[in-house]
Amino acid sequence: MKSITFKLLALTVLIFAISCKKKTPPPEPAPVKPEPAATQIEEPIKPQVEETTEPEDLDKIDLSHIKMDDVYFDFDQATLRDDARATLNRHAEILKANPKVNVLIEGHCDERGTEDYNLALGERRAERVRSYLQSLGIGSERMRTISYGESQPKAMGSDESAWSQNRRAHFVLSLR
């Protein structure tokens, strides 16, 4: 009788410690449930993870975690600068590591020049980037290009610091 009361008391203290600040701990041993429940949860999780094979796993890729920086161009030029090539080399590794990710390459220009000429210039910039990535082994079926010309500046303002930010190729990712 004594030992039972002791055990009950010990359990209550334990539960009290676990369940942390339950104001009126009921004297009955109902709160015993949490402990087995905890072990029950751990066991079924593993098989579930193994069951969800690759396709579902890939759906969980959060594209916002893949960061592909813009690459920049000189005024009225579509040639890839050294810094652009270095950035694109990293992009190629990212795309190789994520074979189910497709990329839209957007060509942009600064505000100087006519809209139609800048649309054409943006096309050339996007295409240069696309062909460079292709030369690094990225399949052409994974890439699309578009030009926005001067219509979507990244930086507002009419000076070189804004313009140099706006002469760029931007990358938009999507899952196949």
């Binding site: 139609d116 649309l119 050339r124 996007a126 295409e127 062909s131 290009t145 030009s147």
Partner: peptide
């Protein structure tokens, strides 16, 4: 883009971007 209709209204000149070449 860049459409231009001929003066007689029968033709149209414009530019096509095909694989980056305009």
């Amino acid at each position: 883009t860049a459409p231009a209709i001929s003066p007689d209204g029968n033709k149209i000149a414009f530019s096509i971007a095909d694989q980056g070449n305009v």
